[in-house]
């Protein structure tokens, strides 16, 4: 089913179709319609990335200790919240992972919230976007596990505490690790899609008050899902920190 093109995607497809096909050909992929290779979720992600870049580029020279602006206050609240959460969940090593976790949080939050603006659509309601983030998390926390504990020590976790349980524990651990990106993906995608669809359905019924209530709910869910995504990322990362460091916090 060809999806409805939002105005930004139409703009990209009208003027940058060649670039889109070239990028897809780099990955040996073909667009469903080669004349219009850009999909809504791709252009929306580019827009979100551009918004974040501009936001921080504007904020950077205005940072002030004496007279912090509203934007600085808001971002400081987000930063201190993530900082304390990372300490709670990972331990005193937690803030080391903050650049990754913080970027993920801001990106997912903006992706979720942008769908509320009429004429735009949340990229996170397309499964590929949460799946991309979830696979990134999966690769990152495993990489950090290998890096911090060494290959053999990290792999030894999969065998469980007792050696004779290892034949059961290894497949169980492999399954539970593989379930992580799946549950991260489905949770974020399903919540965002459901939030959007509920608003759309009620907009079809009435324009009075009710859709606004559901849009408010959508804002709440956007924050909650972005938080859950990074909370779980932090929990997975906490397992990769060597135990003596983790327990000493």
């Amino acid at each position: 089913m060809p999806e409805h093109e939002i105005w930004l995607t139409r703009l990209f497809n009208d003027h940058l179709a060649g670039l889109g096909s070239w990028v897809l050909s780099l990955a040996n992929a073909n667009a469903e319609n080669p004349a219009r290779p850009w999909a809504n979720f791709v252009t929306m992600q580019l827009l979100v990335a551009a918004i974040i870049l501009v936001l921080f580029a504007v904020l950077r020279p205005r940072l002030s200790m004496d007279r912090p602006g509203t934007l600085q206050h808001v971002l400081e609240v987000i930063y201190s919240f993530l900082h304390s959460e990372s300490r709670d969940n990972i331990g005193h090593e937690g803030p080391r992972f903050l650049p990754f976790v913080g970027t993920l949080f801001i990106f997912i939050l903006f992706c979720n919230l942008i769908g509320i603006i009429p004429g735009f659509e949340s990229p996170t309601q397309t499964p590929s976007v949460p799946a991309g983030c979830a696979i990134l998390v999966f690769v990152y926390y495993n990489f950090m596990g290998f890096k911090q504990q060494g290959i053999f020590r990290y792999l030894a976790h999969f065998a469980g505490p007792v050696w004779w349980l290892a034949p059961f524990m290894i497949p169980i651990e492999i399954i539970s690790h593989m379930a992580r990106p799946l549950s991260l993906t489905i949770r974020l995608f399903a919540n965002m899609l459901a939030g959007e669809q509920v608003t759309v359905v009620f907009l079809g019924l009435t324009y009075l008050v009710v859709p606004a209530v559901f849009m408010g709910l959508h804002v709440f869910v956007s924050f909650l899902q972005a938080y859950i995504f990074v909370l779980l990322t932090m929990m997975y990362l906490s397992e990769t920190v060597p135990h003596e460091q983790h327990e000493s916090h």
Binding site: E85, I175, S176, M178, A179, R180, L182, S183, I186, R187, L224, Y227, I228, L231, L232
Partner: peptide
Amino acid sequence: FVVLVGEYTSLAFLLPAATCVGYVI
């Protein structure tokens, strides 16, 4: 409260996701 809501709703997908991955493998 919001943090607790976040933490406990994250548990909801734990069982079905693992079961599903097991079946697919």
